[in-house]
Amino acid sequence: MSIIKTQNLTYLYSTGTPFEIAAIKDVNIEIEQGELVGIIGHTGSGKSTLIQHLNGLLKPTYGKVYIDGQDIWEDKDTIKSVRFKVGLCFQYPEYQLFEETVYKDIAFGPKNMGLDYSEIHRRVHDAASHVGLSEAHLSKSPFDLSGGEKRRAAIAGVMAMQPKVLILDEPTSGLDPKGRDTILNMIKNYRDSTKSTVLIVSHSMEDIAKLATKVLVLNESSVAMYGTVDEIFSKSEEIIQMGLDVPPITRVFMGLAKHGVNVSGQIYTLEQGKVELSKLFAGKCTQGVEGT
């Protein structure tokens, strides 16, 4: 059974006025347990609206959202429990830190869940270790941390709820390459060790290509594509037509294909590129040798 399922999910702004706009329309997706899904699309393509439906922050105008097979709006009073099941970490989450210590801030979510002290304690330490924050960090004020550490502390605050699904909205925006790699590795390890489902909204195709198992492409408020990374990047031409980027390495191989060179259409990481080029050069070399 899929962990996330949406059925004709539609959200309209300014309903009942002539300015009615669909932020998302007719979204039908099914995401399996344990996937790491990269969500891509322009600003305004509906990414934020979609993810806010998955944890019940927004109520669909039409359509249904099922988490773990359960229609989340079936009983309005239980909507809060959905937020613990589907942890949502917004963009620039460090701007939500408020407690006196990092420990207390990470404990905010578990406390709201009504857990007992020892369980909260365990979860805070668990989450802190996922993001690589030490005991010393936990007793500090969150405002004394560095930029990257703040971001990690904020993400730990969502992880500490131990959600079945973790959604991160552009977790690396504004970070330098080192900070970005730290966060991405951390997310990968978190998913590997907890076996939970992770959704990442990102503008960086390189990151998605490196990290994700599935890719969801949103365009003009609808799902344009959903599939494995291989499937999606074999349609690079379409992605570019939507005005989105593909990894530079993919562009190189697209360029080669355009010049009639016979190369695979599914190259999106540097490693794949190297393998493909080795084959290409080796093949041509032998041909050349045979010719002489």
């Binding site: 530079p248 190189v252 360029g255 010049h259 060179v261 041509k284 041909q287």
Partner: peptide, 15 residues
């Protein structure tokens, strides 16, 4: 990327 494509093409030419 264009430079890169050209470079690979020229290597293939030479070969």
């Amino acid at each position: 990327t264009d430079e890169c494509v050209d470079m690979i093409l020229s290597i293939l030419e030479v070969q």
